[in-house]
Design a binder for these strands. Structure first.
Length: 376
RNA sequence: GUGGAUUUAGCGUAGCUGGUUAACGCGCCAGUUUGUGGCACUGGAGACCAUGGGUUCGAGUCCCAUAUUCCACC
């Protein structure tokens, strides 16, 4: 069957091998490399869909586990699917709940058949099998759906990681067999922790299953940056060139640039919106903890080089005031800025790839982003 | 004026029958945040316990005096 999601390679950066491309989906094209904001509960926290669009979001993520528990995936189906329900007419990708296997580790048990969760909301028991996850993701109706995997914690032993990876591959096969919808593309997730031979095996086995796209899972889970880069650079080249390559869970500016340089097309992360809600902004001169006293009387914009609504209209002093008072508007304005900052960054990355200049740009960016950081 | 109560970090409070570095919340300062359970988490600064005197090996804790604020009554 022909996939509803396809990848078109437009240009390869001669300095790094980064890919400038387009991902075609039923809800429109995605220019890549792309950063995808996360909207776990069918909302990118505090932002309207209009704001997301204005700030350059091309595709957003949502979450199987959370929507299944509340409001229920059948309800979302009745609402006409996630797109209708939340009024977002651009592409959506749903994560499978694999990350929750990792993050809710004290509330679940893993068996060959699947994972038993205790709901973090009311303690009720739920069972996720690959087949169940496919049913939920089909009810939600995202353009790209992820196969059910286990995201191993860092560090994990070789034996544990191997067993887990092999099970994830078996689950991927089951997902593929259970997947019925033609307008949704099912991506496989490469696991294998921080062991090269396991990564290689995982990639090889999943590629044999012939998914329309592949993700790297299980990195950016708390390991040192060198470990992350090593595994990223090892795994990305194992992925098919004619399909989208998605690195899960990456969202700091430097990691995004590294991902692009490694040939990754898509990344998602809660980082920009989460740190926004905790009072931190990403700027062209590094991270700014808006809450800090040093900005109390700083009447300049958050990032003078940014063209977002927040930077065009508000001062650091005012944003600090909002954050310190825990005012909702502070969360919103910082979220708007951080999302725009990352979509701007990725737009720039795409341009630099087209100009075969990504390597230089990366160096310049690091100098600037790192310089202010050290200055503090 | 009389009787009662009060006085512990910037604010609000806890400190049991006296015993090593006086606790907590808010506020303040800083750090963390990476396929979002948690507008969260982790640290830090800041008090000679109203003042003076006394009892005791040892007092925020007991006694006396003074001051403070509050309440009631004349």
């Amino acid at each position: 069957m022909k996939s509803s999601v396809t990848y078109e390679l437009l240009h390869t950066d001669k300095t790094t091998g980064a890919r400038r491309g387009v991902v075609h989906t039923p809800h429109g094209d995605i220019q890549t490399p792309v950063f995808m904001p996360v909207g776990t509960q069918a909302t990118v926290k505090s932002m309207t869909v209009e704001e997301l669009k204005e700030n350059g979001a091309q595709i957003i993520l949502s979450n199987t586990y959370h929507l299944y528990l509340r409001p229920g995936s059948k309800l979302v189906r009745k609402a006409g699917g996630l797109h209708n329900f939340m009024r977002w007419d651009r592409p959506i990708l749903t994560d499978c709940g694999g990350f929750q296997v990792f993050s809710l580790s004290d509330l679940r048990t893993i068996t060959e058949d699947g994972v038993e969760f205790k709901s973090h909301l009311d303690g009720s028991k739920h069972f996720f099998s690959p087949e169940k996850v496919m049913e939920i993701e089909e009810d939600l109706g995202a353009d790209i759906i992820m196969s059910f995997d286990e995201c191993c914690p860092y560090p994990s032993s070789y034996e544990y990681t191997k067993d887990s990876m092999e099970r994830t591959t078996r689950w991927a096969k089951r997902c593929k067999d259970a997947h019925t919808t033609e307008n949704q593309a099912l991506f496989g997730i490469i696991q294998g922790g921080f062991y090269e031979d396991l990564r290689e095996q995982s990639a090889k086995d999943l590629i044999e299953l012939d998914f329309p796209g592949y993700a790297i899972g299980g990195i950016s889970v708390g390991e040192p940056k060198e470990e992350f880069l090593k595994m990223l650079k090892f795994t990305a080249p194992l992925m098919p060139e004619n399909k989208p390559r998605y690195l899960m869970g990456v969202g700091s500016p430097d990691y995004l640039i590294e991902a692009a340089m490694a040939g990754i097309d898509m990344c998602d992360c809660v980082l920009p919106t989460r740190i926004a809600r905790n009072g931190t902004a990403m700027t062209s001169h590094g991270k700014v903890v808006v809450r800090n006293a040093t900005y109390a009387e700083d009447f300049s914009p958050l990032d003078p080089e940014c063209d977002c609504y927040t930077c065009k209209n508000y001062t650091r002093a005012y944003l600090r005031h909002l954050v310190k008072c825990n005012e909702i508007l502070g969360d919103r304005l910082l979220s708007i800025h951080n999302i725009k900052f990352l979509t701007n960054l990725m737009e720039r990355v795409r341009m630099e790839i087209e100009n075969d200049n990504l390597s230089n740009f990366a160096q310049d960016f690091y100098k600037k982003y790192g310089y202010t950081k050290e200055e503090e």
